[in-house]
Amino acid sequence: MQDPAARRDSILGKWLERTVATYPPQTSGFLRNEKDRFRNPVGHTLQEGLAALLDQITGEMDTVRIREALGEIVRVRAVQDFTPGQATGFVFLLREILGEELPGGVPTAWQKRIDETALLAFELFVKCREEITEIKAREAQRSFYVRDRMRQRERGEGT
């Protein structure tokens, strides 16, 4: 296998750049350049997350780490103006960037890993959307907490 370590920064830079390019052009610069993590949570999540993903896909392929990093990114994109495909499609960008950066081509193992990661991204996306439905239901419940408690008590269910 080739040593991607030397090209890591360049690969990561491209991946980040092309991912933030899915945001309005007026904003992508801000997402890429603002380094303060509290001012720029979206950019920060992308920077950290993509780096972790790259290291895993070209390295250990630790599924826990992958899931974690991917989850953070997908969670953000699941509530932004994206279709499911757009929200998760950033994973595939890596294949084309690796193709450009590695003269020997992308190893088949990595290609497979990218496919798996993309699939996982889609799964996590769906999970986020399901969570949203549940969270909404719980929010509604909280807003009638006292009424519900009073009814419970009337029925003698105690606390």
Binding site: N33, K35, D36, R37, F38, R39
Partner: peptide
Amino acid sequence: AELREGPRLI
């Protein structure tokens, strides 16, 4: 700004 990361230039 506090806790900033990366190059100072930005």
